[in-house]
Nucleic acid binder design. Structure first.
Lengths: 177, 177
DNA sequence: TCCAACACGTCCGGAAACGGACAGTTGTGT
DNA sequence: ACACAACTGTCCGTTTCCGGACGTGTTGGA
């Protein structure tokens, strides 16, 4: 398997090196020492996953930087999975991170095998989100969902989809529903 | 605003009562003392959110029951938001819960205002997931995503969507892209 | 019991979408 | 400079889809 394209964003060079080393067999890594450097790297390359530290400022432990970074990444590439890392892991911070769209949340120091597994899972998720379906499939899924939601009531489903009843009819026929 | 339809699943009657009371002004609640009772309630009614305890068996603190319950709920209603609760909150359990699709993760004992806010947010999320878009919008979004992913290359985007190039062309025109 | 309301399934003439083809443009390798 | 490949934008004869309308079956209230 080809190596994954990983971006490591952490202000501590030792942490970046340790992560790069631990992941050497599964991922090729670029590094960013600041959120701005991270933005630049995101603009320049396409990544499969990001490893993002939550506490850039020394002594900072609220995780504000990490959440900010998460937002920036989503803005640059909405489908890119982000693994948050912190040494000061409170449950509330973990919950907030994942609710905001983080793919995973790891505590430092990490176990190397857990880190590798998390990165691979995150990369896989990114690929899945990027994958796009043929237009027909998209339509079929929307039709199925509408029919389910309205318990098979064709007239109501058609109205919800903004389509005439015969039109929905034809599609049901077309997709074998 | 109308009261929300909430399902409280916890084996401890005192916990159920406390939650019901704390939420009296925002939600009407049904209760289930076991996962099986929860399934029955799900089959019988449609809810806006579920409050699910993670530790049914006494002394159990792995959260296995909660994750199992979460799976069951998703099977019964994939769009229904679930708030997980536990008294033994480890970061790893919180992370696992949210990665599996939980909407939120609260520690017992809870603050009543935080609980109410979580329930309202979860219910809102449920409604959003249930809401279905007109077929045209679904198509427009898929087209936009395909074009973005291929940097505006029409021929490639059309191929990815399984559509002839003129067809994509017409749609771009139609949606003002 | 009767009637109104609703959903179903189908028909058909008009309208829109289909996609192969063509010519023009850009960019790359020799 | 030239050939080649890929992309673009448009045309047009054919096919498909559209949705209003009609007749039927079922349901629920007067």
């Amino acid at each position: 398997m080809e190596k994954l394209a990983l971006l490591i964003a952490d202000d501590d060079a030792d942490v970046r090196s340790a992560a790069r080393l631990a992941l050497a067999t599964v991922a090729g890594a670029r590094e960013a020492a600041s959120l701005d450097a991270m933005d630049a790297a995101l603009a320049e390359h396409t990544f499969d996953a990001v490893l993002l530290d939550m506490n850039f400022a020394l002594g900072e432990r609220s995780g504000r930087d990490g959440l900010d970074g998460l937002d920036r990444i989503r803005r640059a590439d909405p489908d890119l999975s982000v693994i948050l890392m912190t040494a000061f892991g409170a449950v509330s911070l973990a919950v907030e991170s994942l609710k905001r769209g983080g793919a995973d949340f790891l505590l430092k120091p990490w176990r190397n095998d857990a880190l590798a597994a998390a990165v691979e899972a995150a990369a896989l998720k990114t690929c899945e989100k990027r994958e796009l379906l043929p237009l027909d499939d998209v339509e079929r899924i929307a039709v199925e969902k509408a029919l389910t939601r309205h318990d098979g009531n064709i007239a109501q489903a058609a109205a919800a989809l903004g389509v005439s009843r015969p039109a929905l009819y034809r599609r049901m026929n077309k997709y074998g529903l």
